[in-house]
Design a protein around this nucleic acid. Structure first.
Lengths: 189, 189
DNA sequence: GTCTATAGACTGATAGAC
DNA sequence: GTCTATCAGTCTATAGAC
């Protein structure tokens, strides 16, 4: 593994557990085992690190959504897998997804990072809207309404559930918050 | 207005728009018009300020929930007013409620503050559970399931919706995320 | 690519005069 | 209660040797 990748991994972990502004190059230095100054060789400013982080995350998340579609046929099964991925991102209640972590500290960021963050949200909402549109056909989500409204509500629900679970350091809070929604999903595949 | 109150007001505004760790005594100094050192007379450590903030907020929120119950009869109308209060806390997309702001920066806080924050969550969930229990009787929320599950989902929804709206600096995102839920409320009073 | 050394700004916090 | 002055610690970032 390259030093650059090790730095990105350590930074992602720190950002998701403590927030982007709450870790320093000194923390990364300790985690990866090189000096602070050496990190600046890979990411001259912390803004460069932020951009690399969110950009890598956006790409990997897009792949993950694609994989969900390949492995699940019905809208209900796809949404169930979507919930699972947000649930597993909690890491036992210690972390939130990078998207939530960056949303809470949005002030620190400049245009290139904000654009990538907005792009992430758009990707996610577009995918959800597609799946909820499919749900109207295949009847695999009970009581499904307008696809765009359902998509917005679903994203807010999982992000809010992550926030609450991490605040309580208890992933069961995520399960509590998503119980009603899960009950609407017809889980045959 | 006392200096102490002016400091709390300025701190609350800063915490809700930028986060508790993102403002300094220097910022408060500028906002209120006294020197940094003078702030330490009112709040010796920043942790004392955090405690005073969340404690004041918890009390005023409890009063606000009580007022909602006095002014609205049905569960549907009460939940609609609950949504309104979270929606108006957005301040045009610039802020989140103090509870969300403190949840995102939970690492910075010590026990007395965390206890108050947890208490706030408990208060809020207990109130919601009561209202959803009422909804099973008065039929003012369509498709209502188990009260505790509905309460957890409702809190996650409004907190997630605030997060997304503030990230986009656009309060309409809050409306988008809460459209489906609003549609379930029977709004006669 | 990694290092030592350092700069310059900001943080929360304290001492002591008025 | 507010002030000036100052502290030690942290932060991001840079210069230049190896």
């Amino acid at each position: 593994m390259t030093t650059r990748t090790a730095l990105l991994d350590a930074a992602e972990h720190a950002a998701r557990t403590r927030g982007f502004d709450a870790f320093s190059y000194a923390d990364l230095s300790r985690a990866v085992g090189i000096r602070k100054a050496s990190i600046h060789h890979h990411f001259p400013a912390k803004a460069d690190l932020a951009h690399a982080l969110i950009s890598r995350y956006r790409e990997s998340f897009a792949l993950s959504l694609k994989s969900i579609c390949e492995m699940n046929e019905t809208a209900g099964a796809r949404l169930s897998a979507f919930l699972d991925s947000y649930r597993s991102a909690l890491s036992g209640g210690e972390a939130v997804c990078l998207c939530v972590a960056f949303s809470t500290g949005r002030d620190s960021f400049q245009d290139p990072v904000l654009a990538e963050l907005d792009g992430f949200h758009r990707d996610c909402l577009a995918w959800l809207e597609n799946v909820f549109t499919q749900a109207l056909q295949d009847k695999s989500v009970s009581g499904a309404g307008a696809a765009d409204a359902e998509a917005s509500a679903c994203l807010a629900l999982v992000e809010g559930a992550q926030l609450i679970a991490r605040a309580a350091r208890d992933p069961r809070r995520f399960d509590d918050a998503t119980t009603v929604f899960r009950g609407r999903l017809v889980n045959r595949n």
